[in-house]
């Protein structure tokens, strides 16, 4: 479960996130949408504990990310928009490293890595140095390493960038399965189709504010519009 309570993040004069409150319960697939610089990545970075909130709080599975960061992160999988990987390691070695950081047993780590790498077709790349892999393959390695420890909360920032249609499908299926198994899934994306297809609830951010939250149907009803695209444009286009 993710609980965001009156979260505000200020960058000098700029209010990147303005007084957001949101609860994403266990088992929900939540998609956050918004134009560039709406505050999505900042919100996610605060959720991951990479920035302190200016005010307000974020709780992951009941643990405040600022006060109990280790407990919160232990339950979370976070993949940023540009994930870091050790370029001289092989994917196998990278999985072993991250698995151990999450305290996984060798057997469980291997089983989970084999299962996920199988689904993401990473088998042929497991013994190659990460520096030799393509952008999309590196993205798949980052996703597998994040999901390996069976997290209770998944936070992905633009996870589909760089993935081909086949592996985008695989990722969607896996995230859907995670949500069905009770995992909280929080995904930021610009692909409205992902939100329409996958999300239990959709949040739309604009200029640091959460301007709309609800299921696709609820958003349609509230905005008297048919498509998510027209709702999105109506809520995020300035008429100044």
């Amino acid at each position: 479960m993710i609980e965001i309570d009156q979260l505000t993040k200020q960058f000098g004069d700029l209010r990147a996130v303005a007084d957001i409150s949101l609860t994403v319960p266990a088992g929900e697939f939540f998609v956050i949408l918004g134009p560039n610089a709406a505050g999505k990545t900042t919100t996610i970075k605060v959720m991951a504990g990479l920035m302190k909130p200016t005010s307000g709080s974020v709780r992951i599975c009941g643990f405040d990310i600022s006060a109990s960061p280790i407990e919160a992160r232990r339950r979370m999988a976070y993949v940023p928009d540009f994930p870091f990987l050790y370029d001289k390691l092989t994917p196998t070695e990278f999985f072993q490293f991250t698995g151990k950081l999450f305290g996984m047993e060798d057997g469980a780590m291997q089983a989970e890595a084999e299962r996920l790498t199988g689904r993401f077709n990473l088998g042929e790349f497991l013994a190659k140095p990460i520096e030799d892999l393509s952008h999309g393959t590196k993205q798949r390695v980052a996703i597998v390493s994040a999901l390996m420890h069976s997290p209770e909360v998944v936070v992905f920032d633009e996870p589909m960038v760089g993935l081909d249609p086949h592996h985008t499908r695989v990722l969607k299926d896996i995230l859907r399965e995670q949500a069905a198994a009770g995992v909280t899934v929080f995904v930021s994306t610009h692909q409205l189709s992902v939100a329409e297809e996958m999300a239990d609830r959709i949040g739309i951010m604009h200029q640091g504010r959460l301007v709309a939250v609800g299921s696709h149907e609820e958003l349609q009803a509230a905005n008297r519009d048919n498509t998510l695209e027209s709702i999105f444009l109506a809520l995020t286009t300035d008429n100044a």
């Binding site: 305290g103 047993e105 469980a108």
Partner: peptide, 28 residues
């Protein structure tokens, strides 16, 4: 997830960075 097992983060970081640097040297 197994949170009970004590982990030496330092040793893990040292191992990963040692491998990285050694391979960098070897490839050079």
């Amino acid at each position: 997830m197994n949170g009970a097992k004590p982990i030496s983060h330092w040793r893990l970081l040292a191992k990963v960075n040692r491998m990285q640097n050694w391979r960098r040297l070897k490839s050079a």
